[in-house]
Amino acid sequence: MTTKARASKMVDEAMGASRGAGAGTPSYDESTLEVDEGNLLVCDPSPVDREAFAADPEAKCKAVATSMAQALVKRLFSFPSQPAVSGRTVELPRPKTLLPRFKPIPQPKPLTRWEKFAKEKGIVKRKREKYTFDEHAGEFKRRYGYDRVNDINDVAIIEAKLTDKPGEDPFSRHKKDKRERVRKQEERRLANLKNAAKAGGKKALPATVSLARALPAADDYLSSSGPQRGQKRATKSELLEGAIAASEATASMGKFDKKSKLEGAISKKRGKRQQFAPVLGKGKHAVSAQERDLIEETVRKVISAGSKPILDVGKAVKQIDPRSLRVRKAKTPKKKSKKQREREAGGN
């Protein structure tokens, strides 16, 4: 790999440094220097002048650094340069010094089942063009994915085949098949991950596979997308039990700890067990006394509850003769006879 360094900037800095450090310092013997232009690195393997360093270490260091930088810049200017927007650029040669790697070398990825098989058989993956010509649409389309060639969504009619089952919708069959393929691939992916984990431990798994899950089952941690088909999802009570177990996982196994608040969350109530009267009575009796009592009591209750309205309003209304309800007219006082009037007057 070649590195491009901005030479003009380097030169400016080097010149500035040399001016500051004093122009009078003797120029360095460049033949002893080891220059790695690729890394912009200069080393001086010659022995250090002890006396000069003891007198003024700072000044000596600066002087040495300046001359070394100058030597490097000199080399850079000897390379063929090209004009650029800001000054000139130089193409650096390959670095000579090998630097140690920061991260460990990645492990070779464990082969998937198919990759293993392909290797054995010598099947080589062949590159295919991303776009192919779609005869139906008359244009180039993607081989896979959205708006693909021969997309079932774009086909209005599917020709019947001899192998078709009568009464089956070919569109829904395509959909079903696709779903099945996706499911199978997911199964294969998980199986490959499982095998990789078995062979190389957790390190062999890609970093994206989630390992942190509440209460993982034996090999549950492999499924990043929740429980798979046929796999039980942890119930609330299971999670609670797990949480309680975790809260008690101290040195004394919870002996001296306060009781977890979670414990109250699990209801210890159990479903009520139904009790049935015996099917047969004792001895000669076919029906048990318990059942007989219960039935009789229930019938009595039902009858008393059902016949609450003792007064049947409809019937009662009919009993009344409408004629008897006629409102009587108030009696107007009769005209008093002469005799009566006289008697009253006489009495007064």
Binding site: F276, A277, S288, E291, L294, I295
Partner: peptide, 9 residues
């Protein structure tokens, strides 16, 4: 089996 109380009701 015989009826329970609820069922009989």
């Amino acid at each position: 089996r015989p009826l329970t109380e609820k069922e009989a009701k």
